[in-house]
Design a protein around this nucleic acid. Structure first.
Lengths: 245, 245
DNA sequence: ATGTACGAAATCGTATACGATGATTATGGC
DNA sequence: GCCATAATCATCGTATACGATTTCGTACAT
């Protein structure tokens, strides 16, 4: 019940942000926010009528919102059955990370020439804070900062299609939250170091291919770390590019 | 009116293919097929009520179908105004080609180790036919064969997410059909040659990075050829990777 | 005790209806 | 004759209602 109140508040706020979005848009933002933030965790059953009641709309806009979320991979929808927040199994994790390594690498390379010194300084500050999170064992904040860091790197990507794909990948990963996938021991520390390397490449105006390779490897290394320590590793398809050279 | 008959027939067929798809699914397949095949050409106004009449359903499933097509970029949807088949302007073309160069390159590289000799032979036959199309000036067939050729190269991609992105890109390009974008003079001939080179790399089990680079360059070269001869070139963002080396 | 069949409840899928919004055309004033 | 403004129309946005499908529980037979 207080759930409902919170829901409405969120909707009102969302509506305020973007003038007069359609209800379907509001429902979309509402549900998506809850999935990404974790209120609706993987496996959560999204019953149309219930959510419709929560947001105060009828089922039609809610249904449309859910279908959109399905297209983005955040929700799994089964005909005549219903929708659930899509968990991510090891295979899905692999697919998502691999895809992200490709599109994020490209986005970062395309962004690089457009990143100014201020942004670099900002990213470096974020990375420094991440390093401190490591020492204070604050994985939640670490994760949030990690997204901030990479946002700086790819947010200037001049190709909106690619940028959109990157955001989708991050959102999908966000549903993991603190699951077993994240935080492979030792990987976080390496990650911070690689961030600094990336920043230096960008500062030096390294060529696009070098930056792309570094950015891609940064991500696929996380995937590889997971695969190395995973118990039932799924079929090996992670022939990550840079491994071979 | 005969239009309606054709429409119904298509729907019936689609329904037969996949048991009992939902109407929304059928509407989706119906509209998508017409866009890709060119019956609904770019700029075509998709009026909900009209299409609903054509397929024999009410507007609700049709609306849902159109929103899905919008998510894939085949349709442009404007709130309270309506939907039109999304043409592709030079900027969109650039975005799409660039994105496709990235994901297709990755898909081809991931597929390569899984392509057997039979498939290679098939692709080579297709490419040979393309060469003949060049001499007989049959651009329509050339385009169709081109998709066939590349399908062989990336269809074994073990990552369904990436594969899906590739298909979306091709579908978007399909809406161009015989527009000014396609068939930059001389490019087709080069294209056939590059196809053969790609096949040889795959036969030789070249490493993933080499194949990815070749596949990506194959596409970005087409983009570059267009940009070189285009009148009002959009903002230059095509720093295609391999250009620099 | 277990498996099967039937029935009830929950939930989705679609149709229809009406209100809201943006485009278009007509009209009046300048 | 042209521009501004108001009325009209086309079209979408959403609510409500009902039918279709699936799932779950229960009873019965083996």
């Amino acid at each position: 019940m207080s759930d409902t109140a919170v829901a409405r508040a969120a909707v009102v706020q969302a509506a305020g942000d973007a003038k007069a979005d359609s209800k379907s848009e509001q429902a979309y933002a509402f549900i998506k926010a809850r999935i990404v933030e974790g209120t609706y965790s993987p496996g959560y059953r999204l019953v149309l009528a219930k959510i419709a009641g929560d947001v105060g709309f009828s089922v039609v806009p809610v249904r449309e919102a859910i279908r959109r979320l399905e297209a983005e991979g955040l929700v799994k929808f089964e005909r005549n059955v219903g929708a659930t927040v899509s968990g991510i199994d090891p295979t899905e994790y692999l697919y998502t990370m691999q895809t992200l390594s490709v599109v994020e690498g490209a986005a970062t390379a395309l962004s690089a020439p457009l990143i100014d010194a201020t942004a670099i300084a900002r990213a470096r500050a974020v990375n420094e804070e991440m390093r401190q999170c490591l020492e204070h064992f604050d994985p939640v904040r670490f994760t949030a900062l990690n997204r901030d860091f990479h946002s700086v790197l790819f947010e200037h990507c001049p190709n909106p299609h690619i940028l959109d794909l990157v955001h989708r990948g991050w959102n999908r990963l966000a549903t993991l939250r603190s699951s077993t996938f994240r935080f492979v021991p030792g990987r976080a520390r390496e990650s911070v170091r690689e961030h600094e390397e990336l920043l230096q490449l960008i500062e030096r105006n390294a060529d696009a291919e070098t930056i792309e390779r570094a950015a891609r490897r940064h991500r696929s290394a996380t995937l590889d770390a997971y695969l190395a320590q995973a118990p039932g590793t799924p079929k090996k398809i992670s022939n990550s590019q840079e491994e071979k050279q």
